[in-house]
């Protein structure tokens, strides 16, 4: 206890030591959109310590959950745009407009870095009566409504992937909603659902252990971690226009943050994200390491929003039309 205390105090004191009057003059605050232990939380807690060293200040991280990240997003937007409050989030705000969760998205923020992107993969329970995508389509079409597919609510990764597939083939499955991809994977292993569009990072260990079987990768190329799993574009090239697509993690500050602060933050987090340890972490978990910023990041965000918004809208799960917000069709 005492040791912890001394260590913490000295960590605070030491990390607080830097030249005055230059950004950052005081500790920063990182607002994480998702709960402790989730993938966003873990990625942010992994990338931040090294950035703290470069900044010379601590970044106090807080989880502000709720409303699919909307609570945290609104909070950061309401703070002074001085670069001291960071939004550590996932892809969700890009669908708020069409899902009716407010009129905010990442265009109200300046990206510091988009760290990594996940690759979706369709996984199935080991007892499912098919082993590949063609077999799955055949079985589902022959038994409409019998196959249960896990979902994480409208706008979540599974619902977008399902919408994407349904734009090419008819797949009459029953969607059973879960609180997140963790509980949905548990349900998949227990047989409560037979199919789940998951993020590769979250499914890879279960695939390796043979607890679930991979069906098809939702990407335009195969992945080194699962070289035997075909990419969906091999059989359905018409999906090419949506891909690559995947949920991402990024760090943002409010739009009007001074250039100096943005530059300093980009340097700190950009360097930290290039570290060998962090890259390794992303690779092992099947995330595509990106670490992009500036215009490149903004283009990525715009494209993501356009693909996703139109997919969920065409699938009939969106509340508003992307047209109302001037989101162009991909």
């Amino acid at each position: 206890m005492k040791a912890t205390f001394i260590a913490v105090v000295s960590a605070v004191v030491v990390s607080a030591g830097a030249a005055v009057a230059e950004f950052p003059e005081r500790d920063l605050q990182g607002i994480i959109q998702w709960g402790a232990g989730g993938s966003t939380d873990v990625v942010m807690r992994a990338v931040t310590p090294h950035a703290e060293e470069i900044l010379g200040r601590s970044v106090v991280m807080t989880n502000r959950t709720g409303g699919a990240g909307a609570i945290a997003t609104r909070f950061v937007a309401s703070q002074r745009a001085d670069g001291y409050t960071l939004l550590m989030g996932a892809e969700n705000p890009q669908t708020y407009k069409v899902m009716g969760l407010g009129d905010m998205d990442y265009s109200d923020f300046t990206p510091i870095t988009i760290l990594a992107r996940g690759v979706p993969v369709i996984v199935a329970n080991t007892d499912a009566p098919f082993d590949d995508f063609a077999g799955m389509i055949e079985y589902v079409q022959a038994n409409p409504g019998q196959i249960r597919v896990g979902s994480t609510g409208p706008g979540g990764v599974p619902s977008v992937v399902t919408a994407m597939l349904e734009s090419a083939v008819e797949l009459p499955m029953t969607a059973v909603p879960y609180d997140g991809d963790g509980p949905a994977q548990t349900a998949l292993m227990g047989g409560a659902v037979q199919v789940l569009p998951a993020v590769m990072g979250a499914a890879i260990e279960n695939i390796r252990a043979g607890r679930v079987k991979p069906i098809v990768l939702i990407d335009n190329q195969r992945n080194d971690l699962l070289p035997d799993v075909p990419a969906v574009t091999e059989t359905h090239p018409e999906l090419e226009k949506f891909l690559p697509w995947g949920p991402f993690f990024g760090i943002f500050v409010a739009k009007d943050t001074p250039e100096e602060a943005v530059a300093k933050l980009r340097e700190a987090f950009g360097t930290s994200a290039e570290q060998e340890g962090f890259r390794q972490l992303m690779d092992d978990r099947g995330f595509v390491h990106m670490n992009i910023t500036g215009e490149e990041a903004e283009d990525f965000l715009t494209r993501f929003q356009s693909v996703t918004s139109w997919l969920v809208y065409d699938a009939g799960v969106a509340k508003n039309s992307p047209e109302d917000f001037g989101i162009a069709r991909p």
């Binding site: 912890t4 990390s15 607080a16 030591g17 830097a18 005081r26 605050q29 106090v60």
Partner: peptide, 30 residues
Amino acid sequence: RLIFQVILPEGVIPERQIMAALGNLFGGAR
């Protein structure tokens, strides 16, 4: 505030600046 890093409302007392100043005093510029 210090161990559990709960950012309590600061209000009129500029705590983070005071902490940073104290840090500079003891830790020296790094």
